[in-house]
């Protein structure tokens, strides 16, 4: 199977450039080139637009912190289980070092951040996956944090919003990672039986073992525009069928057309949409 980054060759790379001429005018100036259309945008302006390209609407990846900041009501976030960290259960070559390096580089403890907060005043249990942490792959910690979040939501009857992104199960924890698919899906089933709303938001990219577990089990499934959503990597498919894949294959638009998701929502409308859904699912205590 191909290295993950190669799957997005020419599509997902961004370059930050600091032309010297501009640098003198703008001491803090950082310019960002759009991955999709190549447009150079002043990073501050791009951030103001929630990291969506002004020209072509390309949605850049967000870190977990960025996502929480633009989704939850200010100051409402309380994190859960931040003290769970990955072990190296099958002593996989290079894994311990990779974890340490990734922690240093990202400032994250793991590939998912979970907690609670409010969206438009409505309480939610929220999970956000961060692709910069080993491709937001699911190992024991991701599985455990997601399962605990679902269990807490089941007990407290609070809706869950999960921002998914992932390259799949984490190879470095072997079959234990695979089994996290079963663990999280089983926890989803119990949440569903308890009649609690679960909204899954698929962001770029949501693939493989995460798509084939809790990401696909939302009562309502939303995707961000252009997000890659698919089970098998495109290179593997191309190698199997010996054909080039059509443009747009496994995009959010493609899976919407094939009936796999409910809607595509632009980043600037996401919070509003989630708040509306939460309002429509508010538990009513009717008299009598």
């Amino acid at each position: 199977m191909p290295p993950f980054k190669d799957l997005f060759k020419g599509k997902q790379k961004y370059v930050t450039v600091k032309p010297t001429s501009i640098q003198t005018e703008q001491p803090d100036g950082l310019w960002t080139k759009c991955t999709q259309c190549g447009q150079l945008t002043y990073t501050r302006e791009l951030a103001h637009n929630l990291l969506v390209c002004h020209k072509c609407g390309f949605h850049f990846k967000l870190s977990a912190a960025q996502r929480l900041a633009i989704t939850l009501d200010e100051g409402s976030f309380v994190e859960f289980d931040s003290n769970l960290v990955s072990a190296d259960p099958i002593e996989f070559p290079g894994y311990a070092a990779k974890l340490e390096k990734t922690r240093q580089a990202t400032g994250l403890e793991e590939a998912v951040v979970t907690g609670q907060g409010t969206i438009g005043g409505y309480p939610v249990m929220i999970g956000v996956m961060d692709f910069s942490f080993i491709g937001a792959s699911m190992g024991s910690v991701v599985g455990e944090k997601v399962a605990r979040l679902f269990e807490r939501a089941t007990r407290q009857h609070v809706p869950v919003v999960m921002f998914c992104a992932s390259g799949g199960a984490r190879m470095q924890e072997g079959v234990l990672s695979l089994m996290q698919m079963a663990k999280t899906s089983a926890a989803c089933a119990r949440l569903s039986e308890a009649g609690v709303l679960y909204v899954s938001v698929l962001t770029n990219p949501t693939t493989a073992g995460v798509l084939a577990s809790f990401a696909s089990l939302g009562d309502i499934i939303i995707a961000e525009p252009g997000a890659l959503v698919g089970f098998t990597g495109q290179r593997v498919i191309e190698e199997t069928i010996r054909q080039k894949l059509p443009p747009g294959f496994q995009s959010a638009e493609f899976v919407l057309e094939h009936g796999m998701i409910d809607m595509i929502v632009e980043r600037r409308d996401m919070k509003k949409t989630l708040a509306s859904l939460l309002a429509l699912h508010e538990r009513r205590h009717e008299a009598g």
Binding site: K5, F8, Q66, D130, I134, G167
Partner: peptide, 8 residues
């Protein structure tokens, strides 16, 4: 700024 496309 933007989250980088890192990792595998």
């Amino acid at each position: 700024g933007p989250a980088g496309p890192k990792g595998e």
